[in-house]
Nucleic acid binder design. Structure first.
Length: 780
DNA sequence: CACCCTCGAGTTCA
DNA sequence: CTCGAGGGTG
């Protein structure tokens, strides 16, 4: 039964409906955006009801773009299939500049005229199609198979920056806008941190995180879940880069399309560039590749498009991809490989660390077969099973990192990793050091072979006594309990009692990880019994083993049970003699180095220096009270406790006793005694300097020592408290950080001047501009 | 309490 | 060299 009404009534209703529509859409934008609610849900509902009522009373007012018909009206539910008005094609790929050049050459030939190229970043995200009717968002869908995608309208509404209604006037009745939904790198890291906090699985990469977030479904009405989901979606962003169905666009080029999209209030990328030649496009590919980690989002390549729209039509498309655009793909920095096993290693502190053993694979320039998994919680959080295909990358382009499993490739044969209850090396029951610790530790500090080996290696390391020859393999050789039955070093207490004769008896079994070949290596005197200079590099000191086999002795290998597959090799006596010689020299190392080599918890080079400066001898440290220890700058209650605890252990004291007997110096000669820590002036007094890269005239250690000797503080990382960064060739991220913080950067020559005469010596160079600096740098 | 710093561990390369 | 964890300082 039709209702009757006058023209005036209709006019008034129309005006009211338009007003309501505007307010409702505004509210919707605000609601889905980050603003707090501008109106209450009740007010919103009331407006919707009133609008529905008006549309019922005046059917003329109904239109496709009314809010009652669009988002939120549950026209299509989440993940329902949506057919794109225009198919979403994919792009053909090229993987080298040569291939790109070939593509561009063909395009230019087929075009028959000059071609401008539009270059843009290829965002690693999800392709999404937004359908606007008369300027109002009516649906958002994933790419799907290109013809039919999944409806994600409900979720996309929470992604910031996607307008529910386009700005401006005179929008076409139908336009499809294509773009990429992604999660910015920063937000991705936050998200994974939150996932860990919630005990949920972390996302393997930004792309998965974006896809996972967009494909969430809020189950039921659980408010927490809904809030969490909204929070995740709010981290997503979208950038648009194209247009689907749109007959007769009012512009002539792709770049003008972007301009128009921007005017409409759609988010476009700030990074695109139109260039006149294919060489310029190649240059864009080159530079963007170098900077690929500096953008807010991950990129996996560059997209090059012919800018002129008319050419798009002329060049046409194949069934899969347009001929007027191409994707240049960067070599993957993430690869898939097989997780063969997860095994547990024990470090010098006894911490049991699971790590992944993988099918060797090349990633970002080197072959990787192992990566740490930190602890059992991380293994769980990453969700990897033994036998999985996993995603591997190099964090910071250096450290291999397992990101997560490729779940789709599982065949059911995978098994879960079970953290061992006992130490894999000595069989002692593993336990957390203190209540609530995630890390498990082997409490058998004195005798666990892994820990003794680790401590001995640490003693030889650069930060401690810096003993040449005493590296990973030597430490293992000296402590491995298999052949002979008792190792020369049961603990580090016997280190300085070693004799050349003892070393000659050492045989080491090394298993080559690549070939699986087992080798016996034995130290032996030269035929004439002399220390022998005859075989310096060829047959090698102990380090040579690292080169050829690369691996530590295999403690699980029983030499009696099997014949050796490889040759027995003899380590020349030179290495043995050198080791003894270097150990002898190390006995008079500075006190702080001796302290570091004692392996006291939390006492590294810095804390050790502080303690050594203040107390001057180990005896003084031993006699000090907790308060006195903690009064030293850089030492607090926890380190003080660690020092006190260390002296309580019998076999620790035995180390001191035996080292003392062997001639190790535990006293700084001429130190006036505790508390007299000299407030040494020096040209660098009160200044903090960081050295990075290779500084001509200084070794890494030398630069550090020089800073301290000049009375300055040698910091290991750049912060705003840093006064100078001395940077040479090969300086890495520290240089960038210094620039970002505005810290003064100096070169090797200026560094030398600074050490001599303090800040005044180079103050001239800084105020006087280029001339003075050129003088300093001219010889590089 | 925020910020900065050190410690400790793992990894690969020249 | 980088990261996470956790200590120290203002």
């Amino acid at each position: 039964m039709a209702e009757t009404y006058t023209i005036d009534e209709l006019g008034a209703a129309k005006a009211e409906a338009e007003q309501l529509t505007t307010r409702i859409l505004d509210l919707r934008d605000a609601y889905y955006g980050e603003d707090a609610a501008v109106a209450s849900d009740e007010e919103y509902d009331a407006m919707m009801h009133r609008l529905e009522e008006l549309e019922r009373l005046f059917p003329e007012l109904q239109s496709q773009d009314s809010p009652t018909q669009t988002v939120g009206a549950a026209r299509a539910s989440l993940f329902d299939p949506v057919e794109h008005a225009e198919p979403m094609l994919s792009l053909d790929n090229v993987f080298s500049i040569d291939e790109f050049d070939a593509w561009a050459t063909k395009v230019e030939r087929d075009s028959g005229r000059r071609v401008d190229y539009l270059c843009e970043l290829k965002i690693d995200g999800l392709a999404i199609n937004l359908r606007y009717e008369n300027g109002v968002l009516v649906s958002a869908a994933t790419r799907g198979d290109g013809v039919v995608g999944e409806n994600v309208t409900e979720n996309i509404a929470f992604v910031h920056g996607i307008p529910q209604r386009l700005e401006g006037e005179g929008h076409p009745p139908l336009v499809e806008v294509r773009g990429e939904v992604f999660i910015p790198v920063k937000a991705f890291e936050e998200l994974n941190a939150e996932q860990v906090a919630l005990g949920d699985r972390i996302f393997a990469n930004a792309r998965n995180a974006a896809a996972g977030s967009l494909r969430q479904k809020a189950e039921g009405k659980n408010a927490d879940k809904r809030a969490q989901m909204k929070n995740r979606l709010a981290k997503l962003r979208m950038l648009v880069h194209g247009i689907g169905a749109w007959p007769n666009p009012p512009v002539e080029s792709q770049s003008e399309v972007y301009g128009l999209l921007k005017v409409w209030g759609l988010p476009t990328s700030p990074y695109f560039q139109v260039v006149p030649t294919k060489e310029d496009a190649a240059a864009f590919i080159e530079t963007s590749g170098k900077n690929r980690h500096t953008f807010e989002h991950e990129i996996d390549g560059i997209v090059i498009k012919v800018d002129e729209l008319e050419l798009h039509g002329e060049l046409g498309a194949t069934s899969r991809a347009p001929r007027w655009a191409i994707a240049y793909k960067y070599p993957p920095e993430q690869v898939n490989t097989r997780l063969l096993d997860i095994v547990v290693s024990v470090g010098r502190t006894g911490r049991a660390t699971p790590f992944a053993i993988m099918e060797p694979v090349r990633v970002a320039g080197s072959v990787v077969r192992q990566a740490t998994l930190h602890n059992q919680d991380v293994v769980k959080a990453k969700g990897v099973l033994i036998g999985d295909t996993v995603v591997l990358r190099k964090a910071g382009d250096v450290i291999p990192e397992v990101l997560g499993p490729v779940v789709e490739l599982r065949d059911g044969s995978e098994r879960e990793f079970v953290m061992p209850t006992h130490c894999p090396e000595c069989g002692t029951l593993l336990a957390p050091a203190k209540e609530g610790d995630i890390d498990l530790r082997c409490p058998n500090a004195r005798s666990c072979p892994a820990q003794v080996r680790g401590r001995v290696e640490h003693i030889g390391s650069r930060g401690a006594l810096d003993i040449e020859v005493l590296g990973e393999v030597t430490a293992a050789a000296l402590t491995q309990p298999l052949v002979p039955a008792t190792p020369p070093l049961e603990t580090e207490a016997a280190l300085f009692d070693l004799t050349v004769e003892e070393l000659f008896g050492i045989r080491v079994i090394v298993r080559d990880n690549e070939t699986g070949e087992v080798k016996l290596v034995e130290a032996a005197p030269n035929a004439d019994g002399t220390p022998g200079e005859s075989t310096p590099k060829e047959v090698a000191p102990f380090q040579r083993l690292r080169r050829t086999s690369g691996k530590t002795p295999d403690p699980a290998y029983d030499p009696e049970a099997e014949e050796f597959a490889g040759d027995a090799r003899y380590v020349p006596s030179k290495a043995a003699h050198d080791l003894i010689l270097n150990l002898g020299k190390a006995k008079t190392s500075p006190l702080w180095r001796i302290l570091v080599s004692l392996n006291i918890r939390h006492v590294g080079p810095v804390a050790a220096r502080a303690l050594a400066n203040y107390f001057g001898s180990l005896d003084a440290i031993r006699a000090a009270s907790r308060d006195e220890l903690a009064s030293v700058e850089g030492v607090g209650g926890i380190i003080a406790d660690a020092v006190l605890d260390w002296f309580q252990v019998d076999w620790h004291v035995e180390i001191i006793d035996r080292w003392t007997t062997a001639g190790v110096q535990f006293t700084t000669p001429g130190h006036p005694g505790p508390g007299a820590a000299a407030e040494q002036g020096g040209p660098l007094a009160g200044l903090t300097v960081v050295a990075t890269g290779s500084l001509e005239g200084f070794s890494r250690e030398g630069a550090l020592e020089a800073i301290i000797a000049a009375g300055g503080k040698a910091a290991s990382s750049v912060s705003k408290k840093t006064d100078y960064v001395a940077a040479g060739p090969g300086a890495g991220s520290k240089l960038g950080k210094a620039e970002a913080l505005g810290v003064r950067i100096i070169d090797a020559a200026q560094f030398a001047l600074l050490l001599e005469g303090g800040p005044d010596a180079i103050a001239v160079a800084s105020t006087d501009t280029s001339v003075a600096e050129n003088d300093n740098e001219s010889d590089s």
